[in-house]
């Protein structure tokens, strides 16, 4: 495939490299609580995020996007794999070694209501990371809190209010301010806009973009909103049933999706242009997502794929490199098959 997509600026070492990350949650059954299997929430995913870019991570509910994000931030203990942040594998760090790394990576949560302690004032919520990682005077800390509130567009007089006194969009700004408090390099945005009104979504997304420009942030933007990801991300990764099925630069992925699942996802995005919308052909997938505790043999998508053939049900397709950083896990994308 000739690579028409803009070549990505590649640093020698990306900010974050995830290699073969697995996050399995054990299932215990019976009287003796024997281990009966595992929910393979994230099963062997590999990708990297370069400094300053936004990697969109999309997929339907339950495909393991949030788990992947949390495992990368080491909120979970990954089952296997490596998470290399700035050249250092953090996948199995413990205790203080992990704690001192926390300021570099932060998270913005999906539900701004649930992610703020209802019994703390906005000031103390935003100051919590500062309390934990810096030894500042009270005045310096307060100045920093005000600065952060200004940066995310919150009125600084709100410092003494409680989360329930705010609207959803404002609460999300509080969460963003907290995430920014320690000048992180890498932020996992776990569906930060999914719980917000459409009008507020735009504000928050614009805020995230502005902050990225000003502070040189790197985002892992987890979302199921494909149009928002198209707006925000520089590269997009698609997950299905705990596996990475396709990853490519934004234009490549939206214009020439290689994996049938990606094609189906993109065909479901409505277009605001009525002429294009009238011609849009939806690929409707049938059936349900298989259980991640009992995935089908072969390709995980083989049970629902409209272009499935025999090989898919036996062999698991690897991520084929299609050039220009475009990779897809489908036999149809196999270079040999394409040549034939």
């Amino acid at each position: 495939m000739s690579d028409a997509a803009t070549p990505l600026p590649r640093a020698a070492e990306p900010l974050l490299r995830v290699e073969g990350l697995k996050m399995h949650f054990p299932i215990y059954k019976g009287v003796l609580r024997r281990r009966a299997g595992a929910v393979k929430a994230v099963d062997d995913i590999t990708f990297s995020v370069a400094e300053g870019e936004t990697l969109g991570l999309v997929g339907e509910s339950g495909c393991g996007k949030s788990t992947a994000g949390r495992a990368i931030l080491r909120l979970y203990e990954p089952t296997a794999g490596a998470i290399v942040l700035e050249g250092r594998d953090i996948a199995h760090l413990e205790g203080d070694a992990l704690r001192t790394l926390r300021p570099k990576m932060q998270m913005i949560f999906q539900d701004p209501q649930a992610s703020l302690n209802p019994r703390m004032t906005v000031g103390s919520i935003i100051a919590e990371p500062l309390d934990e990682h810096t030894r500042q005077s009270r005045a310096a800390r307060r100045a920093r809190v005000t600065e952060l509130m200004d940066a995310v567009g919150l009125n600084r007089t709100f410092v003494n209010r409680y989360p329930h006194e705010f609207s959803g969009g404002q609460r999300q700004r509080i969460g963003i301010a907290r995430a920014l408090a320690l000048n992180p390099k890498f932020i996992v945005c776990d569906e930060p806009i999914a719980a917000l009104d459409v009008s507020i979504q735009a504000q928050v997304v614009n805020l995230l973009e502005d902050l990225q420009q000003q502070l040189g942030l790197t985002y892992l933007f987890i979302s199921h909103d494909l149009s928002m990801v198209r707006h925000l991300a520089t590269r997009v990764a698609v997950m299905y049933l705990g596996k990475l099925v396709e990853i490519a630069a934004r234009e490549t992925l939206y214009d020439r999706p290689a994996h049938p699942y990606t094609q189906a996802l993109i065909s479901a995005v409505p277009s605001p242009n009525p002429e294009i919308e009238a011609k849009r052909r939806r690929i409707v997938l049938k059936g349900d997502v298989p259980s991640p505790s009992n995935p089908p043999p072969g390709c995980a998508f083989s049970t629902r794929c409209p272009r499935v053939f025999d090989r898919c049900r036996i062999e698991t397709p690897p991520l084929y490199d299609l050039g220009g950083g475009h990779r897809a896990a489908c036999f149809l994308a196999e270079p040999a098959a394409r040549a034939a």
Binding site: R99, F109, L116, P129
Partner: peptide
């Protein structure tokens, strides 16, 4: 399991302070 406890973990707050600051008041 609430997200604000997860947020505190992602900040790096040690368990004893998560309990004192986030769990006990609630």
């Amino acid at each position: 399991e609430r997200e604000f406890v997860l947020a505190a973990k992602s900040i790096g707050t040690p368990s004893r302070r998560i309990i004192l600051r986030h769990i006990l008041p609630n």
